[in-house]
Amino acid sequence: MTAGYSGQNPARAKPKKKSRRGKFLVIAVIVLGVLLVAADFALAAAGEYQIAQRMREKLQLNEDPSVRINGFPFILQAIRGDYTHVRIDAYGVPIKDEQQGVDLRDLDVGADLRHTRVELADLLAGNVSKATIDTVEGSVRIKAPDLNRLANQVTPFDKLSIEPDNRAATQTPVDPKVPKTTAAIKLSGQTNVAGKVITLTAYGQIALVSGAIQINIDDIELDDASLKQIIPQLRQALAIKIDPGTLPFNATPTAVEVESGSFKLSGQIADVPLVQR
Results as ranks from 00 to 15, higher is better:
Ile133Asn: 00
Asp224Val: 02
Ile51Asn: 07
Asp103Lys: 06
Ser260His: 13
Ile213Cys: 08
Gln8Ala: 10
Glu98Arg: 01
Asp243Gln: 06
Ala184Ser: 12
Arg54Cys: 04
Phe72Asn: 13
Asn250Met: 07
Thr199His: 14
Gly81Met: 02
Gln214Glu: 09
Val258His: 10
Ser266Gln: 15
Val109Lys: 08
Val34Ala: 09
Thr155Gln: 14
Pro273Phe: 06
Leu120Ser: 04
Gln50Arg: 06
Asp103Met: 02
Gly126His: 09
Pro253Val: 00
Arg235Pro: 02
Gly4Phe: 15
Arg56Pro: 01
Pro232His: 03
Asp218Arg: 10
Ile79Val: 15
Asn192Arg: 14
Val29Trp: 14
Ala168Leu: 12
Glu259Tyr: 09
Phe263Cys: 01
Leu32Asp: 03
Lys177Val: 06
Asp134Pro: 03
Ser66Phe: 13
Phe72Asp: 07
Arg141Asp: 10
Leu120Pro: 00
Pro10Gly: 11
Ala184Leu: 15
Asn9Pro: 00
Gly110Met: 12
Val256Ser: 00
Gln205Pro: 00
Lys196Arg: 11
Gln100Val: 05
Ser226Cys: 07
Gln233Pro: 00
Arg117Tyr: 12
Gly195Gln: 12
Asp146Thr: 01
Lys14Ala: 15
Lys16Tyr: 13
Ala251Ile: 03
Gly245Phe: 07
Val174Pro: 10
Thr172Trp: 11
Asp89Arg: 15
Asp146Tyr: 04
Thr116Pro: 01
Val193His: 15
Gly7Glu: 08
Leu274Gln: 09
Arg68Phe: 13
Phe263Glu: 01
Leu43Arg: 01
Ala3Pro: 05
Thr181Asn: 02
Asp218Tyr: 08
Ala45Arg: 02
Thr116His: 11
Gln77Cys: 10
Pro253Arg: 01
Asn216Ser: 13
Val209Gly: 02
Ser226Tyr: 07
Ile220Val: 08
Ala251Pro: 01
Pro248Glu: 05
Gln50Glu: 09
Lys16Ser: 07
Gln50Cys: 00
Asn70His: 12
Thr2Phe: 15
Ala151Met: 09
Leu35Ser: 06
Lys23Ser: 07
Ile215Lys: 13
Arg235Leu: 02
Lys130Gly: 02
Leu36Ile: 11
Gln50Val: 00
Gln205Met: 13
Gly81Ala: 06
Phe72Ser: 08
Leu147Ala: 04
Thr132Cys: 03
Val178Met: 10
Lys16Phe: 13
Lys264Tyr: 07
Ala212Trp: 14
Lys17Asp: 11
Val34Ser: 03
Ala151Asp: 02
Arg235His: 06
Arg235Met: 05
Glu57Gly: 04
Lys159Thr: 04
Gly267Leu: 06
Leu187Val: 08
Leu247Glu: 00
Leu43Ser: 00
Ala207Val: 01
Gly261Lys: 05
Pro164Val: 00
Gln214Asp: 13
Val86Gly: 07
Asn9Met: 10
Ile27Pro: 00
Val26Leu: 11
Leu150Trp: 09
Gln53Met: 08
Ile30Thr: 14
